[in-house]
């Protein structure tokens, strides 16, 4: 069984890394020659070639990082608010929890399509609403405009994954002991103070886990970018870049090199997190 897992996950990864050192093309993937690091960076005829010399790649890296930072921050704040609301006892809580969960269950592609329609430049409901409220004077082409396209992608992601964030934070909230709050209430501490002085420090571990999970997920974003703006360079993510080289341009070598870089970035984040977690555990153990 473990062999299956290794085969299913490990083997393709190993092959991808191997391809990144070859000149394989999609049509003749079997016959390829070893080319060393040429796909990453090469000096040929007076110019630099390879993924690392491609401005579009760096643009996609920047896009992905920006997307991850912005969307995960918004999701954390919104998720926290929703989790605090869900932590209260009120009639209809079960139903409310189910409602909150719905966006999470809708396939990403479909939620991207729904938002795509709502953000439509001429007939979209978002423009209509904003114009009725007098916030904008003329309709905005959300997904076509370079300034707003990335926000559209962030919007879709926030809508879809905030529930996940809220649930993870809620699980952390529910593990907190009640007597602490009882004591704070008796002492007449202001609720806002309670939140920042008691709740936030106590759920920090759960919060960190949620943030890390979401960030790793956001770094490999593909679906909503592909559907909302296809391959526009303003919003291209690392995953979209790699797939474009691989499938559209048929360049398995270059695409694999980009994919390997994506993998390395995410692996690096995982390793750093694990080391940090272990260090903190070590500290806690010494005390």
């Amino acid at each position: 069984m473990l062999l299956t897992l290794l085969l299913v996950a490990g083997w393709p990864l190993a092959r991808t890394i191997w391809f990144s050192f070859t000149d394989a093309r999609l049509g003749r993937i079997g016959e390829n020659a070893f080319v060393g690091f040429d796909n990453y960076l090469a000096y040929f005829d007076g110019q630099w070639l390879g993924v690392l010399a491609d401005g579009l790649w760096w643009q996609s890296v920047w896009n992905t990082v920006w997307f991850t930072l912005v969307s995960v921050s918004i999701e954390t704040v919104l998720g926290m608010i929703i989790a605090l609301a869900l932590n209260q006892v009120f009639p209809g809580r079960g139903l409310f929890r189910a409602i909150v969960l719905i966006p999470w269950a809708i396939p990403t592609v479909i939620s991207a399509r729904m938002w795509n329609w709502m953000l439509h430049d001429q007939f979209g409901v978002v423009n209509d609403l904003l114009m009725k409220l007098g916030l904008i004077a003329a309709p905005i082409a959300w997904t076509a405009n370079a300034d707003t396209a990335m926000w559209a992608v962030v919007m879709v992601d926030v809508w879809k994954t905030t529930p996940f964030m809220a649930l993870l934070i809620l699980a952390g909230l529910q593990m907190l002991p009640d007597d602490l709050y009882e004591a704070a209430r008796v002492d007449g501490v202001h609720p806002v103070r309670v939140f920042f002085r008691i709740t936030l420090p106590l759920i920090r571990p759960a919060l960190m886990v949620a943030i890390i999970f979401r960030s790793l997920d956001a770094l490999r974003v593909f679906d909503q970018v592909y559907v909302l703006t296809s391959a526009a360079s303003d919003t291209m993510s690392m995953s979209v870049y790699a797939r474009q080289e691989l499938v559209e341009f048929q360049d398995v070598g270059l695409g694999s090199a980009a994919a390997t870089l994506v993998f390395l970035v995410i692996a690096l984040v995982i390793v750093v997190t694990l080391v940090a977690a272990r260090l903190r555990l070590g500290e806690a153990g010494e005390r």
């Binding site: 996950a9 083997w11 393709p12 990864l13 190993a14 092959r15 991808t16 191997w18 391809f19 394989a24 999609l26 993937i29 079997g30 790793l216 997920d217 770094l219 490999r220 593909f222 690392m238 995953s239 790699a242 797939r243 691989l246 398995v252 695409g255 694999s256 980009a258 994919a259 390997t260 994506v262 993998f263 995410i266 995982i270």
Partner: peptide
């Protein structure tokens, strides 16, 4: 489970 999907794309394609 945290793997980026693209990282296995070309290897899987061959498989």
């Amino acid at each position: 489970s945290m793997f980026p999907q693209v990282a296995v794309l070309s290897g899987l394609f061959e498989l």
